[in-house]
Amino acid sequence: MSEPIGERIRRAPKVLLHDHLDGGLRPQTIIDLAPEGHVLPATEADALRQWFEDSASSGSLERYLETFDHTVAVMQTADNLRRVARECVEDLAADGVVYAEVRYAPEQHLDGGLSLTEVVEAVRDGFAEGEAAAEADGSPITVRQLLTAMRHQARSMEIAELAVGYRDDGVVGFDIAGAEAGFPPTRHLDAFEYLQRENAHFTIHAGEAFGLPSIWQAIQWCGADRLGHGVRIIDDVTRQPDGSVQLGRLASYVRDKRIPLEMCPSSNIQTGAAASIAEHPIGLLKDLRFRVTVNTDNRLMSGTSLSRELELLVDAFGYDFADLRWFAINAMKSAFLPFDERLAIIDEVIKPAYAVLATMS
Rank of each mutant, 00 (worst) to 15 (best):
G207D: 07
P140N: 03
L195K: 00
T43M: 11
L288M: 02
Q196D: 12
I30C: 02
H70T: 01
D323C: 01
E107C: 03
R155M: 07
A133K: 15
V164E: 01
V356K: 12
A12G: 13
A200N: 00
G37W: 14
L92F: 05
G182Q: 04
Y104T: 00
R86K: 13
D32C: 12
L343N: 00
L227E: 02
S57W: 03
L147G: 04
L227D: 02
I31H: 13
K286N: 14
E36T: 13
S55G: 09
V164R: 01
I234K: 06
G243M: 05
G178T: 06
E309S: 07
Q196S: 13
H20Y: 14
F174T: 09
C222G: 05
A149K: 01
I31F: 13
I30P: 04
D287H: 05
K257F: 06
W221F: 11
K14W: 15
I269K: 09
A105R: 06
V356D: 12
A154T: 12
S252N: 12
I30S: 06
R325H: 12
F336C: 08
E193V: 08
A45C: 07
E279G: 03
E44F: 01
S214G: 11
S252P: 02
R249V: 11
L306I: 12
T67V: 07
V123H: 07
V254P: 10
